[in-house]
Design a protein around this nucleic acid. Structure first.
Length: 304
DNA sequence: AATTTTCCCGCCTGCACTGT
DNA sequence: ACAGTGCAGGCGGGAAAATT
């Protein structure tokens, strides 16, 4: 017999009949009508080409074939009930899944170390990968499931079908060499305007925020160098008189790696939100939910 | 070409009844 | 008293048609 010809629901009828020895009792146990169980028994008889249960007085006695089948049927039902229907889908302790994050280079430096610690505490077999696709490709990569989570500043992710959650708010500061000739103790608007600037044009586009802000303030700065990575600043700043306007977290990371000075901007700097983004296809995925909760609790000020 | 909608057929169920 | 059968109604699945 082909498995397609067997109605799996009939196995529960078989099991109830074997346990109760009665069509009526089996129908009560299964919450079906008595004729339904009788019809089910007829189908079982046809499927297995055996009477299976024979009425002797007022009891349905199993045939030798039914006696052999009974423990096998029970095992199948236990597998379905226990392993298939109670499938929670994800256990961080045993999961060996690989997750792909989208982050800027400084995002990797800032977000990854604490995140890796938390992830491996709960899920030691998990593997991680970070990528920095261009903004035009990020949407498709999240949609296609190539990227599980984007963490940082991604103003281009405005299309429908995405969820986002704010982690914290950041603003800008200025970094410069401690012995920068143009700055003494405090950064003034005059020295800011007169200084030579290095800017970072990376895919995350946070630089556009400060550019727009300076434009509305009608403040012109002299940009003499543009680089694609924040990490370049680690070596450039201490070796030149260039200054850079960067997110606060970037400045703190760079200051850890080289001896640089951090100054508040001589004007009110715009704030911007660092968020995590995910596509709706991953919204209900238990593994992605676990990952998002971990990111949230690691970086949200009121997270646990 | 893929997805959604519609329609039809077959199966399941409950009721009523007969058989054991 | 309980198993089994026939019948009618309702529902679901699959195929075909329509739509995007």
């Amino acid at each position: 017999m082909d498995i397609k010809e067997l109605d799996m629901n009939l196995l529960t009828v078989f099991d109830a009949l074997f346990e109760t020895g009665s069509v009526t009792m089996a129908s009560k146990q299964l919450e079906l009508s008595q004729p339904t169980v009788s019809y089910g028994l007829a189908k079982l008889r046809e499927s297995f080409n055996d009477p299976l249960f024979i009425r002797i007085d007022n009891k349905m006695q199993p045939t030798p074939r039914a006696v052999i089948m009974a423990p096998q049927v029970k095992r199948v039902l236990e597998i379905v009930k226990g392993d298939l229907l109670n499938f929670s889908g994800f256990d961080p302790a045993t999961s060996a899944r690989e997750y792909t994050f989208c982050m800027s280079d400084i995002g990797e430096v800032f977000f990854l170390p604490p995140l890796i610690r938390r992830i491996w505490q709960e899920s030691p077999l998990t593997r991680l990968r970070t990528v920095s696709p261009p903004p035009s490709a990020l949407t498709a990569a999240l949609e296609d499931g190539v990227i599980d989570l984007a963490v940082g500043y991604f103003p281009d992710l405005r299309k429908g079908g995405f969820y986002q959650q704010q982690l914290f708010e950041s603003t800008f500061v200025c970094i410069a060499d401690r012995n920068n000739a143009g700055i003494r103790a405090k950064l003034t608007l005059k020295s800011y305007v007169e200084a030579a600037h290095v800017t970072v044009h990376f895919e995350g586009r946070s630089h556009e925020l400060i550019d727009r802000h300076l434009h509305t303030m009608k403040v012109a700065r002299r940009v003499v160098l543009t680089v694609p990575h924040f990490m370049t600043l680690v070596e450039i700043i201490p070796q030149t008189d260039l200054i850079a306007t960067v997110p606060n977290e970037v400045a703190l990371q760079i200051a850890k790696l080289n001896d640089i000075a951090i100054y508040p901007l001589p004007f009110e700097a715009p704030a911007f939100a660092l968020k995590q983004f995910w596509h709706k296809r991953n919204h209900d995925d238990p593994a992605n939910q676990w990952l998002r909760n971990l990111v949230r609790s690691t970086f949200q000020p009121d997270g646990d």
